[in-house]
Design a binder for these strands. Structure first.
Lengths: 366, 366
DNA sequence: AGGAACGTTGACAGCGCTACCAGCAACGAC
DNA sequence: GTCGTTGCTGGTAGCGCTGTCAACGTTCCT
């Protein structure tokens, strides 16, 4: 009557239990909460499972327990370097745990995010990682009604749904501008692409810092909804120069744009930082090795992903972190591209030689 | 008797069936094979499902049907730009289908890959995408025994497990070297990092091309197992120059290295391409916007991911592609950094000006 | 010595869905 | 008119695991 071996030849929990001489339910407990077993049975089940090469059937487990061991991750982009670092952190943290990552790409659309959220939630994930704090009202309601831990990543803000880990893009932008002020720059342009909420907040930080110094001018701001790229950095900078030839610095909303600006300067024989200083955002690896080296705002992307996933897993397992909102901060990494202005006698258009001399400038930090 | 509404308040198939006035099994069929229903019942079930907001329980479905709707993807790195493009293609292709992507990172370890493969296979995935053709014997055996379609991506080779989509890294490297030969370069260095199998094959292609021209010299090759980076490109190039100061071109195993070499040249005031030509690999976005623009070998990464996933899904659903092995090819995109050597009178060390003149050179393609 | 408290174990009854097969009507072939 | 054949539908019986609860033995307290 009782089926012996399953037709597919797969090892089931029942086989393990039989070999170990315990009931199936005891074997089941071994995999969920080993401490609940006596040491004798624990070792018996363990060796039986190993001997048979038992692998639990996740679908059956999910069905019976009414929950899955899936962590849903919603990010806006798969190509942006920023997110690949975050993702790597998330995957690293999930590795070795029982949880698996289910990734979806919102493509910077909060409507798409809402749709994906609905899909995820229907499968009762163990936890959820979502990007940012700008969800639709509907998404927000779903998140709040969800009976699983949730971490919002990439930025901090008031009113977290549950846990939150990130930093203030607004403050980071202000710090970048403050650094440029310190170095003696005054007419500082802003170059931004994609203009997702976090880039927007960087712009807000830029605007407020400039206004505080009574230096704000709308003509200094060039943005586009187009996805970011190095080439785009050059194009936006070209626009900026056309509007406002007298700028002495550019704050770029990300490093790709900054690199594009650097190349465009080289193309136009504009000395960096002699004539124009450049500051990027994120501190991608290449910033330290460009010529001149490029100043940027370092953000802890890998740590953000890793910590988010770690916190989430802890919370799933009932150990809520003492500190549900974490600000990982940022750091302005000062390099050659934003060194102090030397003098007023700007090098002429044949300034390529001058640009080369920049190499002699000391790299401030890092 | 029969339980009415599930305690969790969730809508089940039974509720949909009841509202539609059909048996549960008929409702079930609607979601798997709508054509099998009469038009009347089909529309009834459809509207009932919509009205109740029914979402199928994937765990139950997987348990009952003994298979999942998960496509496993094994890639070696999450940070490498190359893979993020491939991944984007895979996710784009899976979107809208019933299949979900389960991603794992082998970290360039075939042992790790074997472990992950075992894990994946135990959950009976609907299909599998694996990177490359260098699996362990054990992995290979598991793949061959797997009863699901499999696509190997990133390169082509003999003896596919099932389907395969990629290109020949060996041929691509040879084409890059042939291009440099055409431009008059002879002492061509090779710079490579990580040295995973595909980079190794690029090196093999380089070696064979150089040997064919009787120009091979072991001192021209600088490699390291270290993961690639822009900074590393500069360091490896420095090594190469120390070994062999008389080189006139560098073939970089990827674009990050190429950018690092470019920066190092700038730092050393070596004219590109006047004194040294640079060719990269992959044709990342920034290559077209560097100064000088950088020649690279374009590979169709996004298409590779997208086509792989599309082929896989087709195969899962029983429509095996007529052509199970697909070579997506490559293309040498000739840009300023590898333009023809002009003359023998090399510009002096103050060659930065000369480098700037490069801007005037026409960009060949793209 | 009695009883509470604890730690450990097992029986039962599904979780929500689908594979399998049987049934039934409608239709055409002979 | 009988017999397949086809198209559609439904019943039965699980898929492999776990939640719940009861039962058991042991220890410790009073």
């Amino acid at each position: 009557m009782g089926r012996k071996r399953t037709k597919s030849g797969k090892i089931r929990l029942a086989e393990v239990a039989e070999l170990a001489g315990v009931s199936p339910i005891t074997a089941s407990r071994f995999f969920r909460n080993p401490e609940a077993l006596s040491v004798a049975k624990r070792t018996r089940v363990e060796s039986a499972a190993k001997e048979l090469g038992y692998v639990p059937n996740l679908a059956a487990r999910a069905l019976a327990s009414q929950r899955t061991e899936v962590i849903g991750v919603l990010i806006p982009s798969l190509t942006n370097n920023v997110f690949s670092d975050v993702l790597r952190g998330i995957y690293d943290a999930s590795e070795g745990s029982r949880y698996s990552i289910q990734l979806s790409n919102t493509r910077y659309s909060i409507l798409q995010e809402e749709k994906l959220l609905r899909l995820f939630l229907a499968q009762k994930p163990a936890g959820l990682i979502v990007t940012g704090i700008d969800q639709t009202a509907e998404s927000r309601a779903m998140l709040e009604a969800a009976d699983c831990p949730i971490v919002q990543i990439m930025e901090t803000g008031p009113d977290p749904v549950d846990m939150m880990i990130g930093f203030s893009h607004y403050d980071a932008a202000r710090a970048a501008i403050a650094h440029l002020f310190e170095q003696g720059h005054r007419r500082i342009g802003f170059v931004g692409a994609r203009m997702d909420p976090r880039v927007q907040r960087r712009l807000d930080g830029y605007v407020s810092a400039m206004k505080d110094a009574a230096l704000f001018d709308q003509r200094l701001v060039v943005t586009t909804a187009t996805p970011t790229s190095v080439t785009l950095g050059g194009a936006l900078f070209t626009d900026l120069l056309a509007r406002e030839p007298e700028i002495d610095a550019v704050f770029c909303a990300n490093d790709d744009l900054a690199l594009g600006v650097l190349f465009e300067c080289r193309r136009r024989e504009i000395a960096v930082p002699g004539q124009i200083a450049i500051v990027g955002f994120n501190d991608l690896e290449f910033m330290a090795s460009a010529v001149p080296t490029l100043t940027s705002v370092r953000t802890n992307r890998y740590e953000m992903g890793k910590t988010a996933a770690t916190m989430l897993i802890e919370a799933i397992e009932g150990r809520r972190p003492e500190q549900p909102v974490l600000d990982l901060g940022f750091k302005v990494i000062e390099r050659q591209s934003s060194s102090a202005r030397r003098s007023d006698n700007r090098p002429g258009v044949s300034g390529a030689g001058a640009a080369n001399k920049m190499i002699a400038l000391p790299s401030s930090h890092d």
